[in-house]
Nucleic acid binder design. Structure first.
Length: 371
DNA sequence: GCCACCGGTGGC
DNA sequence: GCCACCGGTGGC
């Protein structure tokens, strides 16, 4: 589970080759096991050597990053919630204030003066989604001096916890068809421009709350990001009788690339199907323990009080009769299963099973005894 | 003093 | 063995 891995980058080079630059100093955890998904999932060949990176500004010139800052993982677009401008402009928007990285400059220079003509249609629109379901980068359908341009989006990597239904079934099987993701505290704060606000004592540590909700399509098994916890809970509560499919998302079909892949770039937790929707006025909160051993479920009352068990809920309702309409049965403290194979290698699980990667990538040191 | 977090356990 | 539940406590 990663909170932020702000310095990891992916750069699309001259030949459309993906260059990974894993951070040395990234915050906890997945760094060496993170498997980045390529931002160009199917169109890389068709983009071929005309693919060039450009660094672009957002509309307000607020956030600017060089091409080297481009990386995936799902936070907010440098263009704000609606992504970069597309198709409307004949040339990239304002030049970047930050100097382009040397490598990119060289690429741009190389292209200049080369006359390239090609009648072929522009490649299909490329994008991947952040955990809000918004595009993380865009392929601009702009040809400039023979180049097609990719608008890069710098994002940080919030912790993403996914939840799916159908307990006990494995990814890729017919019935294992649903997982979910939500924006985490950190992201919400940044979106609201309050990142500098110190976290209130009561707040759960960012990065250990559910960040992204996703559901797996019953037909094609691709994972679809679900935009809100409420929507997720709605799907989850009915998934047994009404399986989730891609077409339940607006303007999405099984033909579209998956929003998310099940891999260790995020910590996944698997929810049980059929858990009732959270009663109105309450919020259901899942918190991952630091050692990744399990999650804890809380219901948060409208006044912000945390309820830790059904008994606490019962006594709360008893002393607050205005909530007597909330059925006790709709409070479920069932916790999702933490998928160990998606936990960071250094997570202190009760019985860690080192993977081959772990062994090959770092030497094994004897564990110091505690206390 | 409060509360986020964790550990332990009883019941299934 | 799992998990719902809750007591304890360390840090703020």
């Amino acid at each position: 589970m990663v909170i932020t891995a702000s310095s990891s980058t992916i750069l699309i080079g001259e030949e459309g080759v993906e260059i990974h630059r894993p951070s040395e100093e990234s915050t906890p955890t997945h760094s060496h096991r993170r498997r980045w998904s390529t931002p160009i999932e199917s169109g890389v060949e068709s983009l071929d050597e005309r693919l060039t990176f450009r660094s672009l500004t957002d509309h307000d010139g607020v956030e600017q990053r060089g091409a080297d800052d481009f990386y995936l993982g799902g936070e907010i677009s440098a263009w704000g919630p609606f992504g970069p401008p597309l198709l409307k402009e004949s040339r990239p928007v304002a030049p970047p204030q930050m100097p382009l990285p040397k490598r990119t400059e060289a690429v741009v220079e190389l292209r200049r003066g080369r006359s390239v003509t090609r009648k072929r249609d522009l490649p299909p629109y490329l994008t991947t989604l952040d955990c809000n379901g918004r595009p993380r980068f865009h392929h601009r359908r702009v040809r400039s001096e023979g180049r097609l341009e990719i608008a890069s989006v710098a994002v940080s990597i919030p912790e993403i916890v996914s939840v799916r239904g159908r307990e006990g079934l494995r990814i890729g099987t017919e019935a294992e068809n649903f997982s979910l993701v939500l924006p985490n505290k950190l992201m919400e704060e940044e979106e609201l421009g309050k990142a500098a606000t110190p976290r209130a004592k009561k707040d759960v540590a960012p990065g250990r709350v559910v960040d992204t909700y996703a559901a797996q399509c019953d037909a094609c098994h691709k994972w679809r990001v679900i935009g809100s916890q409420e929507e997720y809970e709605d799907i989850r509560s009915r998934v047994l009788e009404d399986p989730f499919t891609c077409d339940k998302k607006k303007q999405v079909s099984c033909e579209d690339p998956a929003d998310l892949d099940y891999d260790s770039s995020r910590t996944w937790v698997i929810d049980k199907p059929g858990i009732p929707k959270t009663p109105k006025g309450f919020k259901r909160s899942l918190v991952l323990r630091k050692d990744y051993s399990k999650m804890d479920t809380y219901y948060i009352t409208p006044a912000g009080k945390k309820l830790r068990s059904r008994n606490e809920v019962a006594s709360f309702i008893e002393t607050n009769p205005e909530f007597k309409d909330a059925p006790l049965g709709d409070f479920a403290f069932t916790v999702p299963k933490v998928m160990e194979d998606t936990c960071p290698p250094d997570a202190k699980l009760a019985s860690p099973i080192p993977t081959t990667d772990d062994v090959s990538e770092k030497s094994i040191k004897p564990k110091p005894f505690k206390g």
